[in-house]
Design a protein around this nucleic acid. Sequence first.
DNA 1: GAGCACTGC
Length: 953
Amino acid sequence: MSDKRGKRGDHPKHLKGRDIGEYYKNKRRKDDGERPHRRSEDGHKKRPKDLKGKALGMYYRDKKHMSREERKEITRKNIMGTILLSERRKEEIQRILESNIFENKSKEKATDYSHVEDSVFKRDFLRIIRGNINDILDEASSELIPDHRLDEMLYSFNQNKADDFQYKLLLKKRKKLPSFEKRVELLELIEKNQVVVISGETGCGKTTQVAQFILDDYIDKRKGSTCKIICTQPRRISAISVAERVAEERSETLGGSVGYQIRLEKKLPRERGSICFCTTGVVLKQMESDPCLTGVSHLILDEIHERDVLSDFLMTIIKKVITKRKDLKLILMSATLNSEAFSKYYDNCPHINIPGFTYPVEEYYLEDVIEKTRFDFGNEYRRYSDRQNRDFSDFIEPHVRLLEKEKKYSRNTCIQLRKAESEKVNLDLIFELLLYICHKESRKGAILVFVTGFAEISNLNTLLEKSGKFPSYKYHIYPLHSQMPTAEQKQIFMPASDGTRKIIISTNIAETSITIDDVVFVIDCGKIKMTNYIPETNSQTLLPEWVSLANANQRRGRAGRVQAGVCYHLFSRARKMLLDQYQKPEILRKRLEDVILVAKMLQLGKIKDFFGKLMNPPTEECTYISLDLLHKLNALDKDENLTPLGFHLAKLPMAPQMGKMILFGAIFGCLNPVLSVAASLDFKDAFQLPLGKEKLAEQKKFELSNGWKSDHLVLFRALEMFQTTYNQRQFCRDYFLSSSTLKMLIDMKKQFMGYLHEMNFVTSLDPAAKEFNVNSDNFSLVKACICAGLYPNVCFYKRTKKRGLLRSLEYEKLEFHPKSVLSRERDFESPLFVYYLRMKSSSDFIHDGTMVYPLPLVFFGDQFDASKQVNNGKVITINNALSFRCGNSTAAIIGDLRDKLNWFLEHKICHPGFIDWRKNGEEIPMLRAIMELITSEDLGDFDSDCFDDCDSS
DNA sequence: GAGCACTGC
C-alpha cells in the first residue's frame, strides 16, 4: 500500500476536500482520453473492459490463436452440411419452374419505380422518398382560427366551476405548490418567447400545473378555442395518471378539457381548449403524417432530463419545426440538475427554475453506515488489477485521511473504507443496516432498498428470511422487479398495518415507474444495471455501473414523498465526487435502426446530417452499423433511400426485423403464429420470475416448448393457449405468465393487422382468420418466416467430442441464456439458430433462439453464391459465412427458385395484395414448392453429417 | 446456470 500512497499526493496543494476529488475525477477522465467507456483506437492490444475472469481468458486465447480474418476464412471453408433433394422432389420443382410462371414479367429494377403500377402505395412511397420536411413545413398553416362562440362557452364554463366544492378544495391545495407562486412569471415568459425551459424538482407541481395555467389563461382571456396543448410523458403509466390527476383538479372526468393518448389506449379531450397527455412515441408517430402538428398551440415536453431516445429525437425535430411554425409554443420541462444544457441547445432560450417541495431527507454515506453498524468487510483478497487498486486508493486515501484528521469516525470505519471490497454491493451490509433501522431508529415507515437486479433481490430476500430476524408477523417483504408478479399487485402500495413494517427490495423500477408513498427510509446500493452498445465488437452489454448523481438524488427523493425521511447511500463521499451528473443519454447506448427508419419517414434527409443535430450525436461507427443492417434487410438502398420494403417496415410500429417477419407470415399464409412471435419480441415476453418458484416456472415454460427447439414458438404457444383456455387466470397462474402482458400482446396483434390491412396485404382484421392461416400448422414454415425476419442474427452449434460450442458467424463464443428452452436441449438435428437478442452480461448470451435447417437461410439470407465447384457437386455459400454442399442439379434448382422467390417478393412488396392460399393463383405453386422444400427438411430429409463436417475444411 | 428500465396515430 505504501508505494501507492506516495503517488497519490500529486494534486495541487491548495485543494481541499471536494476539490481534491474533482481534481482526480478530471485527471482520470483526461488520462482515459475523456471517454472512459471507449477503448483505444488500437482495439487489438487493449482488452475489452466488459470481460472478466474466464471470459477474459477465452478472449485472449481466441486472440492468440486466430485473427478475425483468419476466423472468417475458416468459417467460409467450413461446410455446415449437405442439402439433399430426392429425385421425385427435384422433378416436381422442375415442373413448376418450367411452367413459365413469371417468365414474361419484367425483370428490370428501375430506381425511378416506373415499372411499378400506379397505386396508393406507389404514390405514398414516392412522396416519402422524394419529399423533404422543409417543403412540408413551408406549407404549414400558421394561425389557429378562433371560434368566438366556443371562447364564450369555455369562459362561462370555467366561471361556473369557481363555485364547485371539490374544485375549490383542490384549488386550495394547488395554490400551495411552488409552481403556483411562479404562475404569472411563467405565463409571461411563455407569452413572450417561443421556447422556454422550466426546471424544477419533484413536488414543485410543474407536470400537473403548467399546462393548466396556460389553458385557463387562454380561457379567461376569452380565446380558449385557440389553445390546444399536448404534453408528452416518457411512460404510459404517467400519461394516464397525470391526466387523471389533472382532470380531478379541474373537477371533470377525462374527455372534457383533459385527456390522454398512449399506444392502443386513449381518452381524447375535446378538440379545442384542451390538454392531452401523450407518450413521446405517440407524438412522434403522429408527426410522421403531420410533422407540423397542425392545430396544436403548445407542445410541452416533460421529463426531458431522462434523455431517452424518443424525447431526444423529438427535441431535434421540433427545433426544425418551430422555425416554420412560429405560432407553436414549445415548453421543455426537466429536473434542475443540468437544465441549462437544454436552454443552450435551443439557442439560449429563457430558463426558469421552480423550487421543489419535498419533505427533508437526511442523507448518509458509506462511512456513516459503517460507523452505525460497525461493519467489517472481512479479510480482503486481491480481486482488482493493480490499475484498479491504484485508481481506488488514489481517490479514497485523501478522503480517509481527512476523516482521520477530523476524528469524527472510528478507526474501524477508516480501515473498512480503505478496502476495495467496500465498493461492491454487499448484501450483509444491507442486512446489518436494515437491522439498525428496525431496532435503533425510532421512526416507523416503509424501507425501500435499491439493488441492481434479480439475483440481489433474491439473495437479500433469502438472507432476511433465513436470519429469523425479520419474522413475517412484523415485516412484510416485497421483492420488486418488472418481471416479478409483485410489480402488478396493489398490495405493495397499501400502508402497512399497525405493528408491521414494509421492506421493499427493488431494482430501479422504483426510481421512476413505481411510486410507493409511505417510504421513509431508502437504502441506495449505489449501482445500476445498464445496457450499453459497443460498436467495436457490435455487441450489447448489460452490466452494473455506478449510479449517476441524478439517480442518487432520485432514489433519495423516494424517501420524502409524504413526510421527512432518511437515505443511506452505500458509497463514500469520495466516490460521490466521482459520479457523473447524469447517465449517458440512451441514444448513445443503443443501436439505431428504428430511429433511422422514423427519420426517413419524416423525410429528414441524410442520417449523418440529422444525427449531427442531436444533443449528443451517436458515433459514426454506430451510425454505420445500423445503416448496414438496414441495407442487409433490404430496407435502404445504396443512396440511403427507403426501398419499398423499407417503406413498409418504417410504417409498422415495431423493430424492422419484426416487420419483415410479419410480411413473410402474410405471404406464406401463417400469419397468426408469426404475429404472436413478432409482438412478443417487440414488446416483452409474458413469462414472469416468481421468487422461490423459479425452477417450477422454468419447467412449465419448457413444457410449452414441445420439442420444437424454439423459444419463439414457446411465445406463440403461450399466447395461443391463453386465448383458447376456458380459465385464463388459472392458466396464467399455472404457467407463471403475466395476463396484462398477454392482453397487451393480443391488442398489439390486432394493431399489426390494422397496419397490414391498410397496406393491403390482408383483407380483414382478425389475425386468426382462416384465409391468413392456411399454413399456420406448419411450424417449419413459421420458423422459416421467423428466420427471414431475424437474419442475419445467426449462430451455429459446433459439436466437439466432449460438448457443444455455440459460435457466432464471426466465431465468437456464445451461450444460450439459461432462460432459453434451448439451454435445456442436448441434441440438435440442425446446427443452425436464429435469434433476436444477444447480450453480454456474465457471459455472451443468446436470449431467444430458434433452431433452423439450412434451406430457410439459403432462401432468405443474402450474398447467395453457388459458383464454387467441388468434386462432384457445388458449395452454396450465404453471407460469406455459411456453406452447404449439394449436388449440381440441386444447386441449380435452388438458385433458380431463389431468383423467382426474390423477384416475386420484390413485386409483391411494390404491389401489395392478399395472397390467397385457398385459391390457385399463379404464384402459389412456386410458394408451395418452397414451403414443401423447407418442410421436408424439417421432417428429417436432411443429411446427418452436418456436425461432423464442422472440423474439416 | 441467470433475467436494469422504457416506448410506437
